[in-house]
Design a protein around this nucleic acid. Structure first.
Lengths: 169, 169
DNA sequence: CTGAATAGGTCAATAATATTGACATTCCAA
DNA sequence: TTGGAATGTCAATATTATTGACCTATTCAG
């Protein structure tokens, strides 16, 4: 017996693309895409003795200018303790350059060293090929739609803050 | 200094939507969408004492008919040992019903009990709202493009098998 | 100047999820 | 009957994450 939760289109209020089945497929699409995109760089990470947490941090440090620790925390959605382990390891390996912000000396601006930049570009290259192929295959218009939907998904309020998951404060 | 890896559109061979910057945005879009979609059900899981691993398993058991353990392993991309922990817990709580396949008695067909079905629909409902809103906002055409790109991404070979990550066999 | 708030770092304990490796059973198929 | 497929399990370990408790700087408002 298939799962159903909304009353069956009684007066067909919902357009076809908003059925539970379509939404379920979208959930799975995001799941599988995530799998594909973030599994590709694994073999490179393995060489360096890193994991996906390092990759995620490197990515945002690479592509955001003047990231601070708090900025990174917001992007990654993890605790400071968790992030700091990763940053410590990357810094010890000479991948990162953390310097004090001149405008606010409490802040640290995180940058990549040349070594870090090399690694980040290796990782990006590993992901790029799959994506480029998919984009080319789907075509320009589809990519526009893809982007519109993705932005709309990300737009909504953050689940980590909205709910009563955060019991403190 | 921003990162660049492909030679700058010398004769503009690449369409605009295939630039490194667009591909980078797509990677982040998948990352953030995954975050949003799979953080939403967390507070429900917490009530049951489950984690995201349980959610993923429940999802596919709910929406695939006649899933076997191997089928689930392929979908989830984890090891048998990892999956079995989750299945054991779900079964002990009366969420699952595993019965032997009559055609091939080595296989187990995994189904949801009514309890499991209730939980799965709660979890799905938690994800559905965000998605429906995003789809409605983006519109029918955009959703078509979204689907095309997602399918193209998932289409490519599986990173877990293609590389030399799997050293055995 | 003082105190609150912000930004950052760290120690310790623990949890969730995952891995590798080794074995065992049951069952299908050639 | 033998090989392999499907499943389950024990044990050890790794990765990533958490909560909770402290700590130092620095900024900023009063």
């Amino acid at each position: 017996m298939a799962y159903a939760s909304t009353p069956r289109n009684e007066i067909s209020v919902e357009p076809r693309y908003l059925t539970d089945d379509q939404l379920r497929r979208a959930i799975e699409a995001v799941f599988f895409s995530y799998q594909r995109i973030f599994y590709d760089p694994d073999r490179i990470l393995q060489v360096y003795g890193y994991g996906r947490a390092h990759h995620r941090a490197l990515h945002f440090i690479c592509f955001r200018t003047d990231v601070t620790v708090t900025g990174l925390l917001d992007l990654l959605g993890v605790t400071r303790q968790s992030l700091n382990r990763v940053l410590r390891e990357l810094q010890n390996d000479g991948m990162l350059d953390m310097r004090i912000d001149t405008h606010d000396r409490r802040r640290r601006i995180i940058c990549l060293t040349p070594r870090g930049e090399t690694l980040a570009s290796e990782l990006f290259a590993a992901q790029r090929d799959r994506l480029r192929k998919a984009f080319r295959q789907a075509g320009s218009e589809a990519v526009g739609g893809f982007r519109a939907v993705m932005e709309a998904i990300a737009m909504g309020e953050d689940a980590r803050i909205s709910g009563d998951l955060e019991r403190g404060s």
